[in-house]
Amino acid sequence: FKLRPSPRPGPGEHPLQFNYAIWFSRKSQGKTSSSASYDQNLKLVGTFASVEQFWGIYSHLVRPSDLSGHCDYHLFKEGIRPMWEDSANNKGGKWIVRLKKGLGSRCWENLILAMLGEQFMVGEEICGAVISIRYQEDILALWNRTACDQVTTSRIRDTLKRILNLPPNTIMEYKTHNDSIKDNSSF
């Protein structure tokens, strides 16, 4: 992945603060949940460096709510693999927002547009975002680098609430990747 040439904004395009990659994964049959099998299921969809390149990829993707089965989109900064073990993530954590079925596509779009537009105002802290399509709910997660930095995680939570415009009783939980590794479950 790191050997790929980095994308560059084309003439007249609007550059993003960071380059990004979109990944897709679908849970394989069987019950193995090792990090190796997770890694194997990650498929790189594309990379982009500008607003226009983002739309060029995103517009061709199936909307999250129209996917079936147990699958995830991951949108991460270029160079960060969407895995707990990546060096950018291993001291980090994520905000988790559980959504009723039907809200996933709209909330995912609002989340990633805020991330690409640098609306979180937490410097280099944001690593990436995930939407997980599950049988009874859709789950958004926003990953950051430093789980122990409470000022940053609180600011991310407040911005998330604002940009997702969710009902006030929506439950948000923060989980460190270290805890996810220990209990070997993501949510």
Partner: peptide, 21 residues
């Protein structure tokens, strides 16, 4: 360097730009 911020509405406008393929 300078930070590149974009508001949601601006990003949505770019979706319809002729540069977006």
């Amino acid at each position: 360097g300078t930070k590149i911020f974009y508001e949601r509405n601006f990003l949505m406008q770019c979706r319809n730009s002729p540069l977006t393929r």
